[in-house]
Computed example of a mutant assay.
Amino acid sequence: MAWSTREVADLAGTTVNTVRHYHQVGLLEQPSRSSNGYKSYEVSHLVQLLRIRRLRELGVPLDQIDRVSAGDDRALAALEDIDAELAVTIERLQQARVEIRTIIDGATTTDLPRGFENLTARLTETERSLMLIYSQVYDDEAMRDIRVMLESDPADVRADFDALPPDADEQTRIRMAERYAVGLAHDLTTYPWLQDPLAHHRGRPQMTWEAVAESVAALYNPAQLDVIARAHVIALATIAAG
């Protein structure tokens, strides 16, 4: 009995393109051709396809199928590696389900990184955007510290800062900077790495610094950026004065 490519694909529960791909990567032997020039698949090819499909169902990557099919110590080692990878994937998916349920229940939003769910009501849209960016450029320890800072920051100061218009007058900026500097001085003292944030970066340091600087510049208006700069000077002076 001989089958065409489409027929053997149907029997194996896969597609013609998949069969062709298995040929390309060397997982499936090329069949002989019939007198009309078409490929002629036999039972051995069907068995190969079914074995590949079974291993794929078990989560075995295509580039590991040869190792797993070897039937020796290499196969066992490969399966151990795959099992460990699957365990990590399952844990990640289980955590994703928990987070999705939290979003469905209305306790958080989709634009907050993991661990910040309890801050949903406290954070502005700008802060949520920054947290997403920070979670990409800072490590887990830094993100834990940032979460604690946000939890302890006075809500009224953050609300007034968020409402600061871009054309705020000089006196308004001065008063806002003085209020902002109180919490900033505390944070700089409690978390010294804030003065050297690249110590907790992910990826390339220069790219991390540029990403943070550009994000802050893009998300805050001119008056807010001015307040941040003034508050930083005041906070450092406060720390230096002891």
Results as ranks from 00 to 15, higher is better:
4 S>K: 06
4 S>H: 09
7 E>R: 05
7 E>V: 02
9 A>M: 01
13 G>Y: 08
13 G>E: 01
13 G>S: 01
16 V>T: 07
16 V>E: 04
18 T>H: 02
20 R>Y: 10
23 H>L: 01
27 L>E: 00
28 L>C: 00
31 P>A: 03
32 S>L: 13
34 S>T: 10
38 Y>M: 00
39 K>H: 15
41 Y>I: 00
41 Y>H: 02
43 V>E: 08
43 V>R: 14
44 S>F: 12
44 S>E: 05
50 L>N: 03
51 R>G: 01
55 L>N: 00
59 G>F: 13
65 I>L: 02
66 D>P: 01
67 R>E: 03
67 R>S: 09
70 A>H: 08
73 D>A: 08
74 R>K: 11
77 A>P: 06
82 I>Q: 02
87 A>Q: 15
87 A>R: 11
89 T>E: 12
89 T>F: 14
90 I>N: 04
90 I>Y: 13
92 R>I: 07
93 L>S: 07
94 Q>E: 06
94 Q>F: 15
95 Q>F: 15
98 V>D: 05
99 E>L: 10
99 E>P: 04
100 I>S: 08
102 T>M: 11
108 T>Q: 04
109 T>S: 06
113 P>F: 15
115 G>W: 14
115 G>I: 03
118 N>T: 13
119 L>S: 01
120 T>S: 09
129 S>L: 13
134 Y>T: 07
134 Y>E: 08
134 Y>N: 09
137 V>K: 09
140 D>S: 12
141 E>L: 14
142 A>C: 06
143 M>P: 02
143 M>Q: 08
145 D>P: 02
151 E>P: 01
153 D>Y: 15
155 A>G: 09
159 A>E: 07
159 A>Y: 14
160 D>A: 12
161 F>H: 02
163 A>I: 07
163 A>E: 05
168 A>W: 09
169 D>M: 02
170 E>G: 06
174 I>D: 07
176 M>V: 04
178 E>P: 03
178 E>T: 04
179 R>F: 12
181 A>T: 02
181 A>R: 02
183 G>T: 04
189 T>G: 06
193 W>I: 02
193 W>Y: 13
194 L>V: 09
195 Q>E: 14
197 P>H: 11
198 L>Q: 15
204 R>H: 15
209 W>T: 12
210 E>Q: 15
212 V>Q: 15
216 V>Y: 14
216 V>Q: 12
216 V>M: 11
219 L>T: 08
222 P>N: 05
225 L>S: 07
227 V>C: 00
227 V>D: 01
229 A>H: 12
230 R>F: 12
231 A>W: 09
232 H>C: 12
233 V>K: 13
235 A>Y: 12
238 T>C: 09
238 T>I: 08
240 A>Y: 13
240 A>W: 15
240 A>D: 04
